[in-house]
Lab assay of single mutants.
Amino acid sequence: TGIVNVSSSLNVRSSASTSSKVIGSLSGNTKVTIVGEEGAFYKIEYKGSHGYVAAEYI
């Protein structure tokens, strides 16, 4: 489990890349469940599926 540490919002992406499609966003202080790690990204549970967020902001 981690907490989103941004002042505005954090993009949730379809894969572990900044060039991948943005599938949603999370606001600051949102609690997320981390299920894996790929490079600089965490794989998280997101809306019944999975998404990827930049690990530096969690």
Rank of each mutant, 00 (worst) to 15 (best):
I58M: 04
K43N: 02
G24L: 03
T30C: 11
I23Q: 03
E56S: 09
V35C: 08
G2C: 11
E45N: 08
L26Y: 02
L10S: 04
N5E: 06
S8I: 12
T18W: 15
K21Y: 08
N29Q: 10
Y46P: 00
L10P: 07
S9W: 13
S20H: 05
L10V: 15
S8E: 12
T33P: 03
A55C: 12
G36C: 08
E45I: 14
V32P: 01
V53R: 00
S25M: 14
S7I: 11
L10G: 03
Y52S: 00
E56T: 08
S49L: 10
K31Q: 12
K47A: 11
T33W: 11
S15E: 15
Y42K: 04
V22N: 04
Y46N: 01
K21C: 12
S8R: 10
G51H: 02
S9G: 14
V35K: 05
S19M: 10
A40E: 12
T30E: 12
K21F: 09
G36S: 08
S49F: 10
T30W: 07
V53W: 00
S27W: 10
S19Y: 10
V12Y: 02
A54K: 14
E37Q: 15
G48Y: 05
N5V: 12
G24Q: 03
T18K: 12
V35Y: 07
T18P: 14
N5C: 14
E37A: 13
E56V: 11
S25K: 14
Y57R: 06
G24E: 02
S7D: 10
H50P: 05
V35H: 04
I34M: 03
T33M: 09
I44R: 00
V4I: 08
N5A: 09
A55V: 11
S25F: 13
E38N: 06
S27K: 14
R13L: 15
E45H: 08
K21E: 13
S8Y: 14
G51D: 01
H50K: 05
S17W: 05
K31H: 10
I23M: 07
N29A: 09
A54R: 13
S17K: 07
G48F: 05
V22I: 14
Y57V: 04
G51T: 01
R13C: 13
L26E: 01
N11S: 14
N29K: 10
V35P: 01
V12P: 00
G51R: 01
S7L: 12
E37D: 06
T30V: 09
T1P: 08
L26I: 12
I23E: 01
S49Y: 09
S7W: 09
S27F: 10
S14I: 13
S15D: 11
V53L: 03
A55G: 05
G48R: 04
G28I: 11
S27P: 15
K47W: 06
G36K: 06
R13T: 13
E37W: 13
A54L: 15
F41D: 03
V12I: 07
Y42L: 10
I58Y: 03
S20V: 04
Y52T: 00
G24H: 01
K21M: 12
T18Q: 12
V32R: 00
I44D: 00
K43E: 05
S49E: 09
I34E: 01
T18F: 15
K47I: 06
S7Y: 09
T33H: 09
S17C: 10
S15L: 08
A40D: 12
V6C: 15
I34H: 00
H50L: 09
S19Q: 11
V12C: 04
G39F: 05
S17A: 07
V12H: 01
T30Q: 11
Y42E: 01
S17M: 07
I3R: 09
A16V: 05
E45R: 08
S19K: 11
R13Y: 15
V6P: 07
V4P: 04
L26A: 03
S8K: 11
I34K: 00
S17G: 07
A40P: 10
V6S: 12
F41H: 04
A55S: 13
T30M: 10
V22K: 06
S19C: 12
I58V: 10
G24C: 05
T33K: 12
S49W: 07
G36E: 07
V22Q: 04
T1V: 14
V32I: 08
S7F: 09
K31G: 06
V53Q: 00
A54Y: 13
A16N: 04
R13F: 15
Y46T: 00
V32H: 01
S27Y: 09
K43H: 04
I3W: 15
N5D: 07
Y57S: 09
S49I: 11
S49G: 15
I34G: 01
L10A: 11
S8M: 11
T18S: 13
A55I: 14
K31T: 12
T18H: 15
E37G: 07
A55L: 08
I44M: 02
T33L: 09
Y42G: 01
S17I: 05
G36V: 04
I44K: 00
A55K: 15
N29W: 14
I3E: 05
E56D: 08
I23R: 02
V32Q: 00
S14F: 12
T33E: 07
I3F: 14
G48T: 07
S19N: 12
I3K: 07
G51Y: 03
V4L: 05
L26D: 01
S15V: 06
H50S: 07
K43V: 09
S20A: 13
T33S: 08
V32F: 04
E38Q: 08
K31C: 13
I34S: 00
N11H: 14
S20Y: 07
I3L: 10
V4F: 04
Y46M: 02
F41C: 03
I23H: 01
G24A: 03
S19V: 09
A55Q: 13
L26P: 00
E56F: 08
E45W: 10
G2A: 07
V32D: 00
G28S: 12
E56Y: 08
G2I: 08
Y42A: 03
G39Y: 05
N11W: 14
V53H: 00
Y52N: 00
N11C: 15
K43R: 09
F41R: 00
K31F: 11
I34N: 01
Y52K: 00
N29Y: 13
S17Y: 06
Y57F: 14
N5R: 11
H50F: 15
T30L: 06
G51I: 02
